[in-house]
Design a protein around this nucleic acid. Structure first.
Length: 198
DNA sequence: TGCCTGATTGCCT
DNA sequence: GGCAATCAGGCAA
């Protein structure tokens, strides 16, 4: 089942936790890849100096101010891309960074794109997962409910009985930032082998 | 205009 | 553990 627009409403911290266990699907000419989201970070408009929207809208972060449920993809360190799910009302720059996926479908394609055979090294980081999924800057601002790129709820791959259960979530501080580093806005599925860092 | 930094990764010692 | 790759944005001059 495609995630409903209402899924992305509410506090960004809540959406970040709610996204854990859902499935990201990307269809490229070479094939389809699917990953289960196991790690996220929230970036807030107010009181969060690490947030790209903190100093207002620029050409780069423009899509962060778009409608909830669209993508924000940007270039980091001149060579990697990070994928975010936009949250909050339109005009308010908040988003959830997707930091790690558990590979589910298209594993051979992911291995080829990443140049490794190691399952745990395919999507265990924000730059890695974008590479493994074959995503790029062309998807910046795209709605997350298209044939090309979408999010599915847990029923898509897990028995209803399992998905009814709330997953156990660990909360920590965010990774790789200096400003706002003390805020507890990183979330991951407790015990997952596929997170970027424990 | 020029310099510094960064929501990263992988290679090197 | 250190650090280079590589570029857009922020900020000082």
């Amino acid at each position: 089942m495609l995630l409903d627009k209402s899924f992305f409403k509410g506090r960004t911290e809540s959406v970040a936790k709610r996204l854990l266990g859902t499935y990201l699907v990307h269809r490229a000419p070479e094939g389809r890849t699917v990953g289960r989201i196991v790690e996220t970070e929230a970036y807030l408009f107010q009181g969060d100096p690490a947030c790209h929207a903190h100093r207002g809208m620029t050409k780069r972060n423009r899509s962060m101010f778009g409608a909830a449920g669209t993508s924000y993809i940007y270039l980091i360190y001149g060579m990697y891309y990070c994928f975010n799910v936009v949250t909050g009302p339109e005009g308010v720059g908040e988003a959830v960074l997707i930091r790690a996926l558990e590979p589910v479908e298209g594993l051979e394609l992911m291995k080829r794109r990443r140049g490794t055979e190691k399952m745990k090294n395919l999507c265990s980081g924000p730059g890695k997962l974008v590479m493994a999924m074959g995503m790029d800057a062309g998807l910046d601002g795209a709605a997350l409910d298209s044939k090309r790129l979408c999010l599915l709820n847990r029923d898509a791959y897990e028995p209803r009985i399992r998905s009814a259960r709330r997953p156990k979530i660990t909360t920590t501080t965010r990774i790789g930032i200096k400003k706002g580093a003390e805020l507890p806005l990183r979330y991951y599925l407790s015990g997952s082998e596929f997170v970027s860092k424990k």
